[in-house]
């Protein structure tokens, strides 16, 4: 069973960000039979995320969400776009993850915005952030503006969702980077050996 976690940073309830997350989850489930998907809604963790940035440790509920993200085989990260980028809540959640938490992990990036003029935020803001974290980013990003939710008759959004979800599914099936975070202490690193073999 492949485990996928969808992170939704939508701030309102109901939220179009969450709607977009749900559409992506549905598409991934449809295209990959053997998959379990769980949605982590950051709005419910907002206070705890702020606390963790101040104290350096996560509350049990936030730690549970972090553990799910780290253990997931793949991620769907969905955020609203405000003022040309992701909101602080989304970044703060990323900030409380360990630096190596997402190494090699397939991640589908998606965003919702109030205007189509935010559409490149996925490429100029989200993609560099996840590149820094050494995640394996799905080529197609999915941006949805109010126009996309309307009835333009072409279902362009649905097609982008299916394409991106399909790309995530195929990354989960094979490729990968073979890399991941490690909790192990390397007792044979140069540093460790310099302790037990003082000159």
């Amino acid at each position: 069973m492949t485990r996928i976690v969808a992170i939704s940073a939508g701030l309102s309830d109901p939220s179009t960000t969450r709607m977009l997350a749900d559409r992506l989850v549905e598409s991934v489930e449809r295209q990959s039979g053997d998959v379990s998907v769980e949605v982590v809604s950051l709005r419910e963790l907002a206070h705890e995320i702020t606390d963790a940035t101040l104290t350096g440790f996560a509350s049990p509920r936030l730690q549970d969400a972090i553990d799910k993200v780290v253990a997931a085989d793949g991620l769907i990260a969905v955020t609203p776009i405000f003022k040309a980028s992701y909101p602080g809540l989304f970044k703060s959640f990323v900030d409380v993850l360990e630096a190596d938490a997402l190494i090699g992990k397939p991640v589908l990036l998606a965003a919702s915005g109030g205007t189509a003029r935010h559409s490149l935020a996925i490429d100029h803001a989200l993609r560099p952030l996840f590149a820094y974290l050494q995640a394996l980013i799905v080529p197609t990003g999915v941006f949805a503006s109010p126009y996309d939710w309307g009835t333009d008759g072409t279902n362009a959004l649905g097609q982008r969702i299916d394409r991106a979800a399909g790309e995530l599914v195929s990354l989960l099936k094979g490729a990968g980077t073979g890399r991941g975070p490690s909790d192990d202490i390397d007792l044979f690193s140069d540093t460790f050996l310099s302790i037990s073999q003082p000159h």
């Binding site: 705890e48 606390d51 101040l54 104290t55 509350s59």
Partner: peptide, 9 residues
């Protein structure tokens, strides 16, 4: 830890 979690938490 001020201005963060509650005393109780």
């Amino acid at each position: 830890y001020g201005h963060g979690p509650s005393l109780e938490d």
